[in-house]
Design a protein around this nucleic acid. Structure first.
Lengths: 114, 114
DNA sequence: ATCATATATACGAAATTGCATATATATAAA
DNA sequence: TTTATATATATGCAATTTCGTATATATGAT
């Protein structure tokens, strides 16, 4: 993981909030992030695609939904940077987390296997 | 420290290398960074000014030289992110550190006080 | 005072990034 | 098969960022 590519990925409000919310919630789908951030869907999808292309996220499809989570194969330093930032950014994320909790009809998670 | 401002500061090759070299070496002046990165002086100065304006660096003048170091008042998470990245980026910085070591006539540090 | 070295900044041009809109694709339900 | 929901992507434009050059400022030496 090239550190410039990594930090360019975090250098945008929409991308950073999405990444930190995913870190906090383990897994989120596009519609949940759209709701939590109050942004239109193509904007969220575009930024998630960039985070995936740059190796920070992986996705899985479950029916109509696509769930994103942190790439488990990220180097340790990158994982720690994300975790450290998320742990210290609860005020930065407060509004987004509130909107997420108030969201109705969130899709149910089904385990990937077994 | 707004995390978006913080990560925008790291999202450029020149700025990230400068910051990580300063973290590694404790303190560096503009001419040392210019040498280590092989970039022209106005480019280095411009990026250091941005890192200072955004709160990541502080500077002190010593005669003709200006030395930059990590802002000691950064929040803990930001300091840890910088340290974690520097500790894991020695291959990313290898060429720059080599050039720095080969540089002749580096200015002597004088302690700030006492 | 003059000159040399180190650093900072202003400026317009070039490159990159982000955006909204429109549209395409994929899945599920009827 | 038609319709609805969720997501992805293409496109042209707007905004932001970065750059090289020129120049200004600050310090020290002569």
């Amino acid at each position: 993981m090239n550190p410039v590519v990594f930090y360019k990925s975090l250098a945008d409000d929409t991308r950073l909030r999405s990444l930190l919310l995913i870190e906090t919630e383990a897994e989120l789908c596009v519609c949940e992030l759209t709701h939590a951030l109050g942004e239109i869907q193509p904007k969220i999808s575009r930024h998630l695609a960039q985070l995936k292309k740059n190796g920070l996220l992986v996705d899985r499809r479950q029916g109509q939904w696509v769930f994103y989570r942190i790439n488990p194969n990220l180097p340790k330093w990158a994982k720690q940077v994300i975790k450290e930032t998320a742990d210290s950014s609860q005020s930065f994320l407060a509004n987004n987390l509130t909107k997420l909790q108030k969201m109705g009809d969130r899709p149910e998670r089904v385990r990937a296997c077994c």
